[in-house]
Simulated scan of single mutants.
Amino acid sequence: MDQRLVIRELREPDIAAAQEVMRSVIEDSAEAYDPVIHADVEDLRGSYLRRQGAFMLVVEDTTSGEVLATGGLRNGAFDPDEVPPQLALLERRYRDGGTGQVTRVHVLPQHRRCGIARALVEAIIDRARAEAQYVRLALHTHPYSPGALTFWLAMGFQEVLDDMEASHQIFLELPLSTERNRPVLPGTA
Rank of each mutant, 00 (worst) to 15 (best):
D81F: 07
E159H: 03
D126H: 12
A117H: 07
F151A: 02
V21Y: 00
A30I: 05
A138D: 03
A32F: 11
E91S: 13
L5D: 00
R74A: 02
R180L: 04
P146N: 07
A39Y: 15
T63P: 06
A189G: 10
V105W: 14
F157V: 01
V67T: 12
C114V: 06
W152S: 03
L73K: 09
Y94G: 10
V102L: 08
R180P: 07
A69L: 10
E66I: 08
D14G: 11
V58E: 06
A18Q: 02
I37G: 11
G76A: 04
R8C: 08
D79F: 09
E27S: 14
E122W: 04
L44R: 13
V83S: 14
G97A: 07
V41E: 03
A138K: 13
L89W: 01
A119Q: 12
R11I: 02
E9N: 15
M1H: 07
R74H: 08
L44T: 01
M155S: 00
Y48T: 09
R11H: 08
C114L: 10
Y33W: 05
P84C: 12
Y33T: 03
G156T: 02
W152C: 05
G46N: 13
A132K: 14
G53Y: 07
M56F: 11
A132H: 09
R11N: 13
L68I: 02
Q158H: 08
P186D: 06
R104T: 07
D14Y: 06
V107P: 08
V41F: 13
Y48R: 15
L87S: 05
S47C: 11
P186T: 14
V21F: 08
E179I: 15
V59L: 09
G147H: 10
A128C: 01
S145Y: 13
